[in-house]
Write a protein that binds this DNA or RNA. Structure first.
Length: 461
RNA sequence: GGCGGCGUAGCUAAGUGGUAAGGCAGCGGUCUGCAAAAUCGCUAUUCAUCGGUUCGAAUCCGGUCGCCGCCUCCA
């Protein structure tokens, strides 16, 4: 397996630290509002990557942080006039619901920043002891001048940092404008924690990820993921903090997901193209359609989100689901066909080689749709074992892409059973007018009737 | 100013030196009582553009145009 590593700026062959095991840290939500589809692109891409590792047989230990203390959560709490905890509880709950809706595999741990203040303070102590941090006006800062490798991830030199167009003017009390805060001294209207050495205050943003990743994954782990916007400064600062504190390499592979745009424009509230997951569900789209759209384009490319795209995703999913429906309706003889087994093996190998190559999902989906086409040509030749093998294959693919809903087996009620029976009678008597009327009636109730040589089949639409 | 990405059909999207995958949409057939599904045919002589290297370029090199991201708390 190989994939693009932001740290080295090239596609690297993957080697895990502990054979068969992967430590994965992904940047989670700041819980001050409902997550939007741009956020979810990142989470879904992370899910795809994780699911592929699982499919490849790795044991993945996945940690996703929840930022429940920062400027935005504090602002929201003041706006709403309720405590920080009450605000974040609302959005943590919403986030976890959305994760479930989108069929995202849950992380092993969702550590919250506010529950790891001690770990952060310990880390700050280490940085102070080793001389990488200094205190000033009740706050603690990291001195990037002490870390020569600073800027390696984002490929930014220190000179360029200083000429950058925006410098945070609020924090001019730092030694160097480019230093960043580890511990913020207490301010009016802000929640605070007491620390023995640095007084009352709250943690800076970056420190939580360094502290929590090391707690749950160790000082040195395999993969760290997030959106491209996090490369700088967030991930750069994490590296600085962690490596200076431990003296070890922090993360081996950094994977960053490109943003999405909506109708080719940056998503923003003022343009009216800002959507949360809930907004889109309210418009009648299915979560799997959203997931398919967000997954179907390469993670390092800008994705253009549009409602037309969702309709296209709907049709693509329909092709897969119709295929499964057809397979389930066949009446095959016992046995297995060599040609089918061969096709299955080739398709799966090809699917893997595409995914192995920097998660080339478009190529991999192409293989899958080609496979569906090939099997559709041979439906009549399929034997019982072939169908089982095909369905197993589809399940393995779906364990990676996660777009097929497990439909619960719903039974038809007696009244509808009776209608279907009536229609069959009518068809026998060539009374197609009545037959079609019954079919239309059931269709309006969401039940689709399909006539086959072996009798009538039905499904929910 | 610095760093980086992108430009392939109506939409979407692979392919990164050997002669343009796949999905959606469209048109016309087959199958079907009609549908549905499936299937067949048509739909990019061409990959933003100009030049170069090569037997051969969407792929490599150089220029140009256009779009976008980051440069201190935005996934």
């Amino acid at each position: 397996m190989k994939f693009y590593n932001t740290l080295t700026n090239k596609v690297d062959e993957f080697h895990e630290i502990d054979k068969g095991k992967i430590g994965l840290y992904t940047c989670g939500p700041t819980v001050y509002d409902y997550a939007h589809i741009g956020n979810f692109r990142s989470y879904i891409v992370e899910d795809l990557v994780k699911r592929y590792f699982l499919y490849r047989g790795y044991n993945v230990n996945h940690v996703m942080n929840i930022t429940d203390i920062d400027d935005k959560t504090i602002r929201k709490s003041n706006q709403m006039g309720v405590s920080l905890n009450e605000v974040t509880a609302i959005y943590i709950k919403a986030f976890l619901e959305d994760v479930e809706t989108l069929n995202i595999v849950k992380a092993d741990v969702y550590p919250r920043a506010t529950e790891h203040i001690n770990e952060m303070l310990t880390l700050i102590d280490k940085l102070m002891e080793k001389g990488f941090a200094y205190t000033k006006d009740n706050s603690v800062y990291f001195s990037i001048a002490k870390f020569p490798e600073y800027g390696k991830l984002a490929n930014i030199s220190r000179e360029n940092l200083k000429t950058g167009v925006s410098v945070d003017s609020d924090e001019y009390e730092k030694d160097d404008v480019t230093d960043f805060v580890l511990w913020k001294g207490k301010k009016e209207e802000e929640p605070f924690w007491s620390s023995e050495k640095y007084g009352e205050g709250r943690p800076g943003w970056h420190i939580e990820c360094s502290a929590m990743s090391s707690k749950y994954l160790g000082d040195h782990f395999d993969i760290h993921m997030g959106g491209v916007d996090n490369i700088f400064p967030h991930h750069e600062n994490e590296i600085a903090q962690s490596q200076c504190a431990t003296g070890e390499q922090f993360v081996n592979y950094w994977i960053h997901c490109q943003h999405l745009v909506v109708d080719n424009q940056k998503m923003s509230k003022s343009l009216g193209n800002f959507y949360t997951l809930r907004d889109i569900l309210d418009k009648g789209f299915d979560p799997m359609e959203i997931r398919y759209l967000l997954i179907s384009s390469h993670y390092r490319k800008m994705l253009n989100f549009s409602f037309d795209g969702l309709l296209q995703a709907r049709q693509a999913l329909k092709r897969i689901n119709d295929f499964i429906f057809t397979l389930n309706g066949l009446n095959p003889a016992e046995g297995e066909t060599v040609a089918i087994t061969t096709l299955l093996n080739e398709s799966e190998a090809h699917f893997q080689s595409d995914m192995d190559d920097d998660f080339n999902i478009s190529g991999a989906l192409g293989v899958f749709f080609d496979f569906i086409y090939q099997i559709n040509l041979k439906l009549q030749e399929l034997k019982k074992q072939d169908i089982k093998n095909i369905l197993d294959f589809i399940n393995r693919i779906d364990s990676v892409i996660g777009v097929l809903k497990q439909k619960e087996e719903k039974m038809l009620d007696a009244e509808i059973e009776e209608k279907i029976k009536q229609r069959q009678e009518a068809r026998k008597e060539k009374n197609f007018k009545l037959a079609d009327a019954i079919r239309d009636e059931l269709k309006s109730k969401g039940i689709l009737l399909i006539d086959t040589p072996d009798g009538v089949r039905w499904k929910y639409e």
